[in-house]
Amino acid sequence: MDGAAMLVGDVGCGAGATSIAAARANSKARIIGMDLSEALLAVAAERAAGLDNLGFVAGPVEDILPPLGPFDLIVSRHGVMFFPDPVDGLAAMRAGAAPGAGLIFSCFRAPSHNLWSSEIVAAMLDAPPPPPEAYAPGPFAFADEKFVRSVLAAAGWSNAEPRAVDFTYRAGEGEDPVADAVAFFTRIGPAARVLRDAPAGRRRDMLDRVAEVCARYRHGNAVDFPAAAWLWSAENR
């Protein structure tokens, strides 16, 4: 790089946690976080006050990455599963990558490994949700290893390798962690979508069922679910 600072792009950075961690870990790198939500980026910018090697840009990756690149590393924490067309989205990321640049991203594995989704939704619907018939943007859009490998190849990325990671998904905490978790699930994820589409007369019962599931995973002042993700790496070769 001829002495130039390493340029790192964080796709779907949200409120900036990963971008901020990267900026603090390597003060000589230049980090650019990008997201569609200007409201979340405003929170990120406030949290990042004082970090001179970090900036944020609002907009889709195809409008941001190539003009600001080439990037030496592109990362994304659970931000790649929402592209309308996953091949186009990952190809746009590659278009903004320098030759030899790395790509690292995480995405959820199957709902059966993520009880914060599968058990909650099954309780709300009285049955497990049917699997999607085709690709649809969402938390589990990249759950299938073979599908993701094919998408990365079609987008031009090389040497793609996944690593399975198990972790704890904290849904609620505080004096009433169950209530905190229920409120969280009404705002985000598959449960929020089920609740939004349900008849008004059923929503109270659904929320009570969500609370029952959350109570089973309460540990002291926290509600923690088992969760599982893929950690993918690839290269622009």
Rank of each mutant, 00 (worst) to 15 (best):
P137F: 01
G16Q: 11
A49Q: 14
A229D: 14
C214I: 07
L41M: 07
Y217I: 07
L207T: 15
A101N: 02
A222W: 03
V223R: 00
A4H: 03
E46C: 01
E46H: 08
L36R: 04
P131N: 03
L7T: 00
A171L: 13
A234D: 05
A143Y: 09
D166H: 12
A228T: 05
A153P: 02
D63P: 00
R170Y: 06
G201I: 07
P70M: 08
M1Y: 08
G9D: 02
H113G: 07
I32C: 11
G59K: 14
A25Y: 14
L231G: 06
C107A: 14
L41G: 06
M206H: 11
E38Q: 10
A23F: 10
A134V: 00
I64W: 11
A39V: 10
P84N: 13
F167Y: 15
G50Q: 09
F225V: 11
G12P: 10
N236A: 07
N221C: 06
E145W: 09
F142L: 05
P66E: 00
V61I: 13
A17T: 11
L90A: 08
R193Q: 13
E161G: 02
E119C: 06
A234S: 09
D166L: 02
L51G: 00
E46L: 01
A58L: 03
A164W: 07
S112E: 13
C214M: 15
D176M: 15
G33H: 04
A42Q: 07
E145I: 00
I104K: 02
D166G: 13
L51N: 04
V57E: 09
M124Y: 02
A229I: 12
A97E: 01
W232H: 05
M1H: 11
N236F: 01
P60H: 04
D10H: 06
V8C: 07
A4E: 12
A45L: 04
R216A: 09
F140K: 02
N236G: 02
M206D: 13
F71G: 00
A215K: 01
F83P: 01
I32S: 02
F82H: 06
A21W: 07
Y135G: 12
P199T: 10
A136D: 15
G69C: 15
D85S: 11
R24P: 01
R170M: 05
V165K: 14
V121F: 11
I188H: 12
D72A: 02
I32A: 03
G172I: 00
G138W: 02
G14V: 08
V213T: 11
F108R: 03
S19A: 15
P70C: 12
M124E: 03
M206G: 09
F83V: 12
R237I: 10
M124L: 10
G50L: 12
S106Y: 01
G55H: 08
W230A: 05
V121H: 15
D166R: 14
S158D: 01
Y217M: 08
G174T: 14
I31F: 02
A171Q: 06
D35I: 02
A191I: 10
V11K: 10
F140N: 05
F83C: 04
P99T: 03
R170P: 06
Y169K: 11
A228M: 11
A181T: 09
A58W: 12
A192M: 10
V194D: 03
L207Y: 13
T186K: 15
R204T: 15
A122F: 07
